[in-house]
Nucleic acid binder design. Sequence first.
DNA 1: TTTTCTTGCTAACGAACGTTAGCAATGGTA
DNA 2: TACCATTGCTAACGTTCGTTAGCAAGAAAA
Lengths: 196, 196
Amino acid sequence: METALLSRKDQIDHTATVLFRARGFAATSMRELATALGIEAGSIYSHIRSKEEILHRICFRLADQFFAGFEDATQNNTLPIADSLRRAIESHVQVLTADVAASAVFLHEWRHLSEPARTEFLALREQYEAGFRQLLINGAETGTLYAPDPAFASLTLLASLNWLPTWYAPGGKLAPADIAHRLANQLLFGLEVREN
Amino acid sequence: METALLSRKDQIDHTATVLFRARGFAATSMRELATALGIEAGSIYSHIRSKEEILHRICFRLADQFFAGFEDATQNNTLPIADSLRRAIESHVQVLTADVAASAVFLHEWRHLSEPARTEFLALREQYEAGFRQLLINGAETGTLYAPDPAFASLTLLASLNWLPTWYAPGGKLAPADIAHRLANQLLFGLEVREN
DNA sequence: TTTTCTTGCTAACGAACGTTAGCAATGGTA
DNA sequence: TACCATTGCTAACGTTCGTTAGCAAGAAAA
């Protein structure tokens, strides 16, 4: 097979991602997935070992992308912290919007991973969140960010970002870069009218 | 039966809420639910008509609570808009934290409602979000809130709030009122250091 | 006392589930 | 040409699913 841009395995991952997002992992049957691919249920197992393996790949691939983006965004530590934070926010939004379906699965379906994958996944997520938290802590300590409770603030910050896959649709009015910019502004400046 | 504080039906709803939150609606079996209640699977059907009926009650009960809270918070239209918004935020957080499990189900499991309930639910949610959006629009028009794109801002605002059930645990360091206050501050003032 | 409501049981139904075994066609590679 | 990886099929497996029928015990209501 030369014509296909994606290997059959990648097609399976992609189609499964869309279905997992729309119906949830548990409510998506292998027969539904097969139908969406235009083949029979048993045929899928020529390419994968189990249903959960698909979920595993989706979740950990996204985790890799979030980490790589964050590293890239924050590696220049001569930048003001607010700028690093802005870059990290933009990177997060970029990963989210590059594959909304996969992001939604990453955010909501990881609980259906069985051990030990589930624990590994949660450790990665915690590590990633710690990166944001540390940015806010550094900013608060050096007086460049206003964050009386950096741990709390980082939760709220990631919350605003992670809700994005529930409403973002590619090709909409706002491009991903616009969204990232507005989100960063709103989170940094707030809704209150500025006096100065 | 006189001794029970909750009717058996309410016990079923409550136990199901916890399980639906932890495992998801589709991945929770009636036999699991029965075991958690200390009875047999078939016995549940002396009290309910179907599994989905439980989900339906949970989702629409929460919707009622969100609406009631919002009405109460915003009925006084002599208040400055920022104050109304703050009160609406506090109400939302109060409903979320009063029953975290039910809130998580409300936020994530409604997709497993079948038609027409699913459409009805989404209409209610949209109506509720429109309430917040209108507050921001009014605030922006009267110059009391800084929101260049009120629709976008209201999405971000609700995002920050709705992520709460993923990490909030009753009895933690922060009381619900504290959380509401901090959230409102962070959303209104932002993370940037204020010059004035 | 008779009736009715609540609560629960056992046993089973048909359907759907994830997965496997065994076989076959195709097309690139040696 | 011979080989082999890819891809797919049919048929079936054992399990679990939501749900129902029929029956029964106890408490409350008439």
